Structure formats: C-alpha cells, structure tokens
Amino acid sequence: MSWVLAFCGFAALIILHEFGHFMAAKAVGMRVEKFSLFFGPMLARFRRGETTYGIGPIPLGGYVKITGMNPAEEIAPEVEHRAYYRQPVWKRIVVISAGPAMNLLIAFLLIWGLLTFQGRENPDPAKARYVSQVERGTPAATALKPKDRIVSIDGGTNPVNFQRAISSHRCAGTPADRCAATTPVTVVVDRGGEQKTLRITPFYDGDLHRTRLGFGYGYPPGYKPPFEHVGPLEAVSQSASGMWNVTSLTVSSIGKLFYDSQARKDVSGVVGSYEATRQAFTFDITRAIEILALISLSLAVVNLFPFLPLDGGHIFWALAEKVRGRPIAFSVMERAGFVGFALVAALFFLGLSNDIGRLTGEGFNIR
C-alpha cells in the first residue's frame, strides 16, 4: 500500500503543477493542445474540445503543450493569435509562474493543515541524546554511529548543553571554514549496552559560525513527542516562516554544489524522494505528508531558477524581452537552453547516483 500512496502523492504534485500552467493558459486565452501526466507517447488519451488529455509511460514528470511555445513551429492562421509567443510578456509570465505557484500553494496548505489540525510537535530536548544521523566526511563519521546513545559530552550529561560544549572548542586564531579545533571533544556513548569513550576533534562551520562534529541529535526509538495547539492564524505565520527557511536552505545548498563535495553527496533525486515518501507512509502518515510538502516546495524553488528548460528560464527570457523592448532571438535562447539542460541533467544524475548509493547502503534515515 505504501507504494501506491507514494505514487499517488507524487502524481498529485505533478498533476497540480501542470494544472496550474493549464488553467492559467486557458484563463489568458492561449491554446492548449495537450495535457499529459508523465512523459513519452501517450498510452491512454481522450480529447475534449481543443485539448488532448493523456498519460505517458515515463513517470518522471508531465507537461502541458501550448501552441507556439517554439517560435519556429508552424501554426495554423486561425489560431496564430492565441500562440504563446504571440502573447504579451505579462501573460507568458502568468502562465509559466502558475506551475511553481501551485506547488507553493500545495506546500503551504499541507503545512498549515498539519499545524492547524494536529498542532506543533513539542519534544522534550532533554531526551534528544541519540545519534540520528552522521554526515559523511565529518569528524563524527569516523567515530559515531546512528543509534548511539550519548551519555555525556565533556563530562556534561544534559543534552540541552551538548551543542554549547562542542562549540567551546575553537580553532587557533581567526577561524576559517572547516578548520580543526585545537582540542578534541570527549564523547561517551552507549553502543549496544557497552560504554565507549571517544575523543573527536570538531571543525568550524563557516555557515553556522561555530564548531561542530557533524551528527544529528535524535530521540529514543518509539518516542512520540506531545503536540502543542496552534491556532489557524498562528499556523499561517509559522507555515510561511518555515517555508522561507527551507527555501533559503535550498538555494544556498544548490550554490554549494559547485564547490562543496559534501553538498553534492547530500543531493537526492526522484528515486530517493519517492523512496523516502514510501517509507514514511509505512510508519507515519503525518511524516509522509511533511515530506510531500517539502518536495512540493523544492519543486517550486528549483523550477524558478533562471535556466531553460525550467520555468524560471522562461520567466527570465520574457523579462529580458520586456527590458529590451523587442523579442530575443530564438537561437540565443536555444544556446542558453543547452547550458540549462546540461545543468539540470547533471543535477538529475547526481541525485540518481546518490539515491542508488542510499538504496544499497545506509538508507534514507527518515525516522
């Protein structure tokens, strides 16, 4: 059943994204030729009015075909006035923006709904003494293991103070990103009923402006934190704030791909996102909905990057035309599109490679 639920969740995100483009195109008078869930030749189709609806064999996306998206295509004279590139810039931007806007709306509604009807998790920080995950390539990766129970750090036993204790170990002089602290942290863990004393040297994280070891804190297996009531209006504010934080993190993470090998290892693709959602459905529907909300938000953010064939690329060239005062040569957009396509393809294969590694290795650690 988890396979079906995850598939339906992903299909809904795709359908609604394309539905945003579809409805906006219809609203501004453009001619929509096709509406397809998934790529490839349609396996099943039906026609209503001037639009053909169908489903393709490759479940990696979907598309809406609007007449005149390619300025070089031949268009029947009777529909030429409704072609995409015959429309004012504002109409094109509305149509292209509608897809990411739909994903933003979905993410907001899912997060708002969880906060309003279930409340906000209010876990006891004193119980967060388990290692939930370990970042590859960090000092923690050489010593700690997921599910280790932290007994003490530098002699302190209160988890609330663990981070402060680690941060007290500093680099010599002015800290530089990833510099090693001058002294190690003493970490005592319980691993399978046996206590081990570990000495781990933290590194300075330039983004967080503090030293850290490179692991995440978790709660005891089966721990269910209590929920705190959140009113509908407060949920609006918290949903927007949370989405903004995730958006900022997503943008900065994508920027790091060009120079940070660890950031490249953290990238996940379609396979990983689907598998994480499927696993979440096996033990916690709330967690699965949270993941779908994050995926929907990520789809919106990534799609708005100014590279063709992404939606943001179409918006960028439409704005460039507006500023320039006349259309941009299609040959220029085509050459730019090759660069954008190469970047998107590289990101896709990087995510796929990482996903395969997780499927055959340490897993996705979504609990």
Score class of each variant (00 low, 15 high):
P59V: 14
S97A: 14
L109T: 04
T183I: 04
P77F: 11
V131N: 01
F117H: 05
R170Y: 08
D190E: 14
V160L: 14
A143L: 02
I200F: 06
M102P: 05
E73A: 03
K65F: 06
L115Y: 04
P123Q: 08
Q118Y: 14
A165E: 15
G173M: 10
T142S: 10
Q118G: 11
A98W: 11
G68D: 12
L110K: 02
P184I: 11
R164Q: 14
A172D: 15
Q87G: 02
A140Y: 04
K91W: 06
A126R: 05
R136M: 13
T183D: 13
A72F: 06
G173K: 05
V89A: 14
I106R: 07
A141E: 12
L144D: 07
I58W: 15
F117S: 01
A176E: 14
G99A: 11
V134N: 05
R86T: 09
V187F: 06
L198F: 03
H81G: 12
T142L: 14
V134Q: 07
S132F: 14
K65H: 02
C171G: 06
P71S: 05
G56I: 08
A143N: 01
P146C: 11
V187R: 04
S167H: 03
A180Y: 03
R178V: 03
T186S: 13
V79E: 14
L144V: 03
A101D: 09
D154R: 03
D148L: 07
P71H: 03
G62P: 08
E135G: 01
V94F: 15
Q163P: 03
V185T: 09
L114F: 11
I200G: 01
V79I: 13
G193L: 06
A101T: 09
R178Y: 09
E73W: 15
I93A: 12
I58G: 08
T138P: 05
G61N: 09
R129C: 00
V187D: 10
A180Q: 12
V187C: 07
L105P: 00
P139Y: 14
R170I: 06
I106K: 07
A126P: 00
A101E: 04
L114N: 12
A76G: 09
G137Q: 11
I150Q: 08
E78Q: 06
R164M: 11
G193E: 05
D148C: 02
G113N: 08
A172Q: 14
A83N: 07
D177I: 02
D177K: 00
R199Y: 10
T201G: 10
V79W: 02
V188M: 09
L109A: 13
N161R: 12
T197W: 08
F108I: 12
Y63R: 02
G68T: 05
P184E: 05
I93S: 07
P57M: 13
A76D: 13
R92S: 01
T186L: 10
R120D: 09
L144S: 11
A76Y: 05
D177W: 02
P88A: 12
Q118L: 12
K65R: 14
I106M: 08
F162T: 08
L110G: 08
Y85P: 00
